[in-house]
Amino acid sequence: MHTKRINTPLDHRQIAGLRSGEEVLLSGVIYTARDQAHKRLAEQIKKRVKLPFVLKGQAIYYCGPTKTPKGKAIGSCGPTTSKRMDEFTPALLKHGLKGMIGKGSRDKEVVAAIKKNKAVYFLAFAGCGALVSKYVKSARPIAYKELGPEAIYELKVKDLPLIVGIDSKGKDVFEKYKHQYKTI
């Protein structure tokens, strides 16, 4: 079976067919945003200020890359823990965000918001920043540059290998292990 190829911007047709657990290769433009960028985006949505990029149909990558070595498109750039973005995610989805890329599980509210807005959450190879950098063709900061690695970068990726974590029907790949993750 061939691995499915998908492209950004994401549309309903591409997303509807994806199933949790499935492997895909993603190409096109994605935007990095992590903690501080999420806080700012959520604030700007609340204040109805124009966002630094149009969220509709786009995918956000939870990533803060290292500095870019000479001669490379980007430095090490693996995913960061998605859970920390959970409190800001439903507002972004409501605003048209279609895809998220990160590592690890999400909370119930995010799963519900993904289902409601027919979006998708992908997992990238966790702790493999050097490997992931091979699929990034270009990178440039487009907003919040003063945040350094937490700025929003526009990345062009080619065939970035991902696993569908939560599909548009709200099916969560981590669901079957959830009973084991009791809190202390």
């Binding site: 990533c63 290292t66 070595p69 490379k72 090490s76 693996g78 960061t80 920043g129």
Partner: peptide
């Protein structure tokens, strides 16, 4: 390639 093993150094 002398790249960080993980971006979180």
């Amino acid at each position: 390639e002398r790249l960080a093993i993980c971006q979180d150094t």
